[in-house]
């Protein structure tokens, strides 16, 4: 396992009266795809939002490349090299696909070679380049949201449930796209409910339950152990479609 680019140490998050994260700790190694799995309400989305500073950690530390980013404002965290694709996709519906991508390329004009690579991953974006993002289908919006995260080289891509609500064919396309992104050397922390899709992608895995990490290790080991899957996730890979 390579050196962690992101490390969470005992992170706790409270939202109003609710105590959501209870000391979350795990590492994201550089150049690998780490999966964050868990049942609904386990705290996966809250973990990603806490990393991005969208919700504040009340205790613990988030270290990015050895630097404590726990208290940094969200824009500074993004500028440190993190890209975030939220569960809601959060594409700017009133802007065109092109304008969404232009905003994502913070440091200047879009790089044409990188754009060609993104179009290779998500051909629909080329077709709808000048269309308002609001008219795209759910799957196309998801493509745009991920493409926005890839518009410029970033050091870590955080993606929250990219296959949620997508048709099976679209899920297969998405898995293939992530396979290519991973092959390009990007470091990814991926929250995923679709265990079948996740197992095909992940190098490492952290499983959450009730606001804490209950298991972490290589994905290969979890994928091979049906009993462990059953105890951690309440299902086995064989049962999951």
């Amino acid at each position: 396992m390579s050196e962690p680019i992101l490390r969470l140490e005992g992170v706790e998050t409270r939202i109003g009266p609710y105590h959501i994260l209870h000391g979350v700790s795990f590492d994201v190694p550089a150049g690998e795809l780490t999966l964050l799995l868990g049942r609904n309400g386990a705290g996966k989305t809250t973990t990603l939002r806490t990393i991005m500073g969208l919700w504040r950690a009340s205790a613990g530390r988030v270290l990015f490349d050895g630097r404590d980013i726990t208290a940094l404002p969200t824009p500074d965290i993004a500028r440190a090299g993190l890209a975030y694709v939220p569960e809601s996709m959060a594409v700017f519906s009133d802007l065109t696909v092109r304008e969404n991508m232009v905003l994502a390329a913070r440091s200047g004009p879009l790089d044409s070679a990188r754009l060609d690579w993104i179009f290779g991953l998500f051909p629909a974006l080329r077709r709808f380049w000048q269309s308002r993002a609001g008219v795209l289908s759910g799957g196309q919006k998801q493509m745009l949201a991920i493409a926005r995260g890839l518009a410029e080289p970033r050091r870590l891509l955080l993606v929250d449930e990219p296959t949620k609500g997508l048709a099976p064919a679209m899920v297969r396309n998405m898995v293939e796209a992530f396979r290519q992104v991973k092959a390009a050397g990007e470091t990814i922390l991926l929250v995923e409910q679709n265990f079948h899709a996740a197992s095909a992608l992940g190098d490492d895995v952290a499983v959450m339950d009730n606001g804490t990490v209950v298991h972490s290790g290589p994905m290969r080991a979890l994928a091979a152990d049906a009993a462990l899957q059953q105890s951690l996730l309440g299902l086995s890979l064989d049962q999951h479609q």
Binding site: M52, L54, P73, T74, P75, A78, R79, Y84, P86, A90, F92, S93, D94, L95, E99, L103, A104, R106, R148
Partner: peptide, 15 residues
């Protein structure tokens, strides 16, 4: 225009 729609995402993009 993006901020009118989703200021949180604008911040997450680094602005």
């Amino acid at each position: 225009r993006a901020g009118v729609e989703n200021p949180e995402m604008v911040e997450a993009l680094g602005y």
